[in-house]
Design a protein around this nucleic acid. Structure first.
Lengths: 137, 137
DNA sequence: TTATTAAATAAGAATGATTACGATTTAGAT
DNA sequence: ATCTAAATCGTAATCATTCTTATTTAATAA
């Protein structure tokens, strides 16, 4: 089963409907192995559905993020999304500031910080590395 | 010499002028030991200078960041600023999502990643921990 | 002290991403 | 084929931020 079908199946189980728009959004992401800004998805959607609304695109991006089909991050003030990495365990990314491609970072800095943060209730954390990948550097 | 005077002195050396607005911005930050959203600074400025413009506030926030008087970060899509921590060496923060107060994290996760990132040119990184501090938790 | 001028500010328009919302359409169940 | 909740469309609204131009001001030198 491919990424798209798996995602749609997952949505169906939660009672969400299968729509052309949703299918297309997932297809678009499947063509990228990187974070893509919401507005770029909107643009590509408009090529296929000239009258698609912002609302549809944004709503689905957030839905797909909640369902863990996508991962989200904020880069330069814009929300970006990408297909969840195949890996099932927690991870981070190096993000190329030129081409946008990412490299998986398996190491999580939270591991060694339990001691330091005694008394603090950790809810979340963000660790991202930015720079040029070997192709762009 | 206090924080404000030190900052103004530093600006003067670079040829920037001392203005009431700049003085006040620094004073506002000195009253907080935490990240403050730009719009909150704008609001406090308007109490003292009813006709201050967005431009003045934003321009100065960026100037002060470049001059390392302030540190900047983006939280929930909004730019936040705080006085630079006293410490001169590179550091990170735990940020309380309730009160906004921060805890200095001396550990930097980049140290152990040189190996992993061979061939990659690292330009920047972001590591922040979010949660509740002991007072708010 | 006054004149000079480059820097800084005010005022408000413009931008750009995102969110909101009422009306309409559609997917999926019966 | 009918029904209904979910999804979408179309568009307006919001909100932070950036830009622009005219005016004011701080610092310098006469």
């Amino acid at each position: 089963m491919n990424t798209k079908d798996r995602a749609l199946q997952q949505l169906k189980e939660k009672g969400y409907k299968k729509t052309k728009q949703r299918e297309r959004i997932i297809e678009i992401f499947a063509a990228y192995d990187q974070y893509v800004p919401a507005k770029k998805i909107l643009k590509e959607m408009q090529e296929e559905f000239p009258s698609v609304s912002f609302d549809t695109v944004y709503r689905n991006l957030y839905l797909l993020s909640e369902e863990k089909v996508l991962e989200a991050t904020e880069l330069e003030g814009e929300k970006h999304f990408r297909l969840s990495c195949g890996t099932n365990h927690h991870h981070h990314h190096f993000i190329c500031t030129d081409c946008g491609k990412t490299k998986l970072i398996e190491f999580c800095p939270m591991e060694g910080l339990k001691e330091d943060l005694r008394g603090y209730e950790v809810e979340n954390h963000k660790f991202e590395i930015y720079g040029k990948c070997p192709q762009c550097g």
